[in-house]
Design a protein around this nucleic acid. Sequence first.
DNA 1: CTGAAAGCGCTAACAC
DNA 2: GTGTTAGCGCTTTCAG
Lengths: 347, 347
Amino acid sequence: MTRVAGRGGSPSAPRSADVAQLAGVSRKTVSRVLNNEPYVSDDVRRRVIEAAEKLGYRLNNAARALASGRTRSIGVVALGTAGYGTASLLVAIEKAVRDSGYALRVVNTLDGEPDDIARAVDSLLDQGVDGIIVSEPVIEGEVSVRVDVPVLFLGAPPAFGGPRAVTASVGADLLARAATDHLLDLGHQTVHHLAGPLRWYAARDRVEGWRAALAARGRHQPPLVEGDWSADSGYQAGRKLAADPEVTAVFVSGDDMAIGLIHALTEAGRRVPHDVSVIGFDGNPVFAHVTPPLTTVRQPFDAAAREGLRLLVHAIEKPDTHMPPASDPPVELVVRASTAPPPSSPS
Amino acid sequence: MTRVAGRGGSPSAPRSADVAQLAGVSRKTVSRVLNNEPYVSDDVRRRVIEAAEKLGYRLNNAARALASGRTRSIGVVALGTAGYGTASLLVAIEKAVRDSGYALRVVNTLDGEPDDIARAVDSLLDQGVDGIIVSEPVIEGEVSVRVDVPVLFLGAPPAFGGPRAVTASVGADLLARAATDHLLDLGHQTVHHLAGPLRWYAARDRVEGWRAALAARGRHQPPLVEGDWSADSGYQAGRKLAADPEVTAVFVSGDDMAIGLIHALTEAGRRVPHDVSVIGFDGNPVFAHVTPPLTTVRQPFDAAAREGLRLLVHAIEKPDTHMPPASDPPVELVVRASTAPPPSSPS
DNA sequence: CTGAAAGCGCTAACAC
DNA sequence: GTGTTAGCGCTTTCAG
């Protein structure tokens, strides 16, 4: 009862022994109740919970982690850019992690380079996490860290990553295909593509989807243009594309780039969508209010995060059992006014 | 040497005793070296570091936290919306936290309501953090959690929060004032304001700045309009404002809302900036590429986060010493093309 | 400058 | 159903 401050922590924070004493049980029983373990009588359970509440007891996570070998936390390596896509994905991940009963630790990388990712993973490992999510992996190089916890690669192929790696699709290829098909359905002979940096899996997946859509109808595949996700890079690309009269439809790998592209096109006298149709990628709602309102495909951030987390948690908690692979997330096309039939079309 | 797997963790992860043995020193000395404590000879230091590297030794954070009473981590309560502003702030916070040598734990709230914040703070406390950052506090209600670690309120007045609360300004009032002054300097008789939800401190601070700018020149203060940060709400507000011929200049409390507002204005036949000038708030670079390119003020996310963290870390590490309050972050006006002199002005 | 002993608060294994 | 015992791997205190 007359306990003075612990060596480091706040003065006289109650310990499980205090709860045990007040409830008239052993410490282990307190532990059982607080961990929702079976084989505790309802009466005892109630008493323990009441005692804990009365004391304002809070389980000490460090002690728990030390004793159990599990931190109950998951680390995410995110991209330190505040774009709508990456930010939405992080929000979705946070929710999925929290819903799974884990705590979330975040480390950002500047540009997702393998070295950066390795550093981030390393720092997560230092902190002690039960699992890691790499939210935007890049394709080049190898992440050179020995990892002994499961790692979820969101949107990367299974080949990438070491042992205990799991992957979940964000459905980028399907989304890209739907976007391209939308343009083709409108009557365009072919569709140009402004991609993200090809070092990114996200960018590559979308290129794949675009290629697949074109190939499925036997259409010509124009050379692709590469941007860096920014609106500025979209603008630069747009200036080039505007000079080519063959261009009547462009699928752009991100809403921001699409806005930059439209800017350049308009500036060059090519009206959108009258002369050139443009479809974006992400689904940022603000672009319903620009001129012209941007047609786009909405990324299923929540579904992808939830599904990925299901896999990761499974890998953490039941490493030996098998888990069916994730189903593809839904495709959602948001048709607004930046796409239309081609100019010469008998619409 | 023949140690089998610890009870929980990965098989035979090296412990400090292993490093100590290899380096021929005591465990305490290993601890000293790894914590950069003084009073270790360079020779010993080198030997320990080499041994640690050779073994791939990683300090066990749970044990360290348990023994020291410090987790070396900081928790942030963020807003679970993927807007440019909140996302940028989170990125800035992550960097500042990492640079300070702490790990970052994130809990999002849906809308920043006091209850939500209380829940989030509680979960952070459960996890065990040395300090907490509430990144977007709302004004109503009281956060009803007993907190025994320092809390940083970004952009909230000192009055808010319990003991050990520190606050840092994001300079919202100054920014708002600069935005309003810009419009006034252009020759507008007065400036209307589309605010964010007034439950937010962020929204209120901007209102203050707007009022102050108007008052300083003895201008009429039109009634303010309240949005919810979304472009849609900006559009709704714009439909109302468009009907009022007195409106020639609007300061909008967020870029997205400004885009929605411009949309509505344009739709109603009021040209921007010819008939009505609009200035946003945030500094999202994508809006340099819309029509018209949006004039805005850039929020100093990095400076605010850095400054706030300096204060928080100080409160954590040297609770008894005084720390000078933060200086105001810089004001950066980004003049593009959505603002111009008023229609009747003899420009 | 370095080491020995003690203990942080919890959970795992096993006994009852 | 419940209690006992023994650590998890580190830092702290204090002695040299």
